[in-house]
């Protein structure tokens, strides 16, 4: 154990190192035993047969190209939906945050109520309502490029994430040193100019990691449309492959790995940016109240 990334224990002495080695051996044995049980069970049920895996991993298989075309289309649609929803959420969220900061103490109460209300709703219900109920109340999106379900999904995801972003933006602005706003106003900028030219650009820089982490959440949430309507995103495409080939474990494994790969890379990107900013802003952080850490709403 070279790195000291926890406060729980000291650098280990000879006794503790021996205990760690014994623990390591036991842990390895237990984990291997678990893996063996799972693999044996799967093998017993013939889940490793090339008949089931072939279309996914063997380029020579007759279905290989078609399957990956379907999956590729799913990835494109998932990314498209996530990016559009994300962009709209950031824009509307920023507007909400700015409105909240510029309104008076009483005028902002309805806005806060609105934000709290939407923060308490499950995203799957918002997606359901905007896909299923919007046409009922006369909102026809089927002429829009992408169609009814796509925009229903976008609206549902945006409704959920815009209020999260409103909070992120607010925290980002609040974490800036007060002198920034004071100096901007002192140089003769109006309130709007101060917000637009001085505060928001800095806040966005601080928020960038939070925005990317939230993109992971949005990307995962696009798959919820599978419970609501037909839209060819990654998970739904996986389902239709399973309907045709009858290989749920194999296809879901591949689909899950694709989600994990995309989201893991996004997560690392967020970490990287945060670390880079951490280096740049250690001096600035000392003068702020909240520090540069902007909370990401919701978590899951």
């Amino acid at each position: 154990m070279s790195q000291q990334d926890t406060v729980l224990y000291d650098a280990q002495g000879p006794k503790a190192r021996r205990r760690t080695r014994i623990g390591t051996a036991i842990a390895v044995l237990v984990l291997i035993a678990l893996a063996v049980v799972v693999v044996l069970r799967l093998a017993e049920r013939d889940q490793f047969s090339m008949e089931l895996w072939g279309p996914l991993i063997n380029p020579g298989n007759e279905n290989f190209e078609l399957v990956w075309e379907v999956i590729g289309e799913g990835i494109v649609n998932t990314l498209k939906a996530a990016i559009v929803a994300m962009t709209l959420s950031v824009v509307i969220g920023t507007l909400i945050a700015v409105a909240r900061l510029s309104l008076g103490r009483f005028a902002r109460i309805p806005l806060i109520g609105f934000v709290e209300l939407f923060r308490g709703l499950p995203v799957v219900i918002l997606v359901y309502l905007s896909v299923r109920a919007l046409p009922d109340v006369g909102v026809d999106l089927s002429d829009w490029p992408g169609g009814q379900v796509f925009w229903g999904l976008i609206i549902g995801l945006t409704a959920y994430n815009m209020v999260i972003f409103a909070e992120v933006v607010r925290a980002g602005i609040a974490s800036l040193p007060r002198g920034q706003r004071e100096a901007a106003l002192a140089t003769g900028l109006t309130n709007g100019q101060t917000m637009r030219i001085v505060l928001l650009p800095q806040a966005f820089r601080i928020m960038l990691p939070a925005i990317i982490s939230q993109l992971v959440v949005v990307l995962k949430d696009t798959s919820l449309v599978v419970f609501v309507a037909n839209f060819d995103e990654l998970l739904s495409q996986g389902e239709s492959i399973i309907r045709n080939l009858g290989n749920p474990i194999q296809t879901f494994t591949v689909i899950a790995l694709l989600y994990i790969a995309i989201n893991y890379l996004l997560g690392r990107l967020a970490q990287y940016i945060q670390r880079r900013q951490g280096r740049a802003s250690t001096r600035a952080a000392e003068t702020t109240d909240a520090g540069p850490n902007v909370p990401v709403g919701g978590g899951a």
Binding site: Q12, G23, A27, L235, A256, Y264, G267
Partner: peptide, 26 residues
């Protein structure tokens, strides 16, 4: 994840990166 035993730490990291990055629906 915070234990001094390397394979357990690796298992914890594996667990977290798997389930955090997979949609709940999957």
């Amino acid at each position: 994840r915070v234990s001094p035993v390397p394979p357990l730490r690796a298992f914890g990291t594996f667990w977290v990166s798997t389930f955090r990055n997979t949609p709940l629906s999957v």
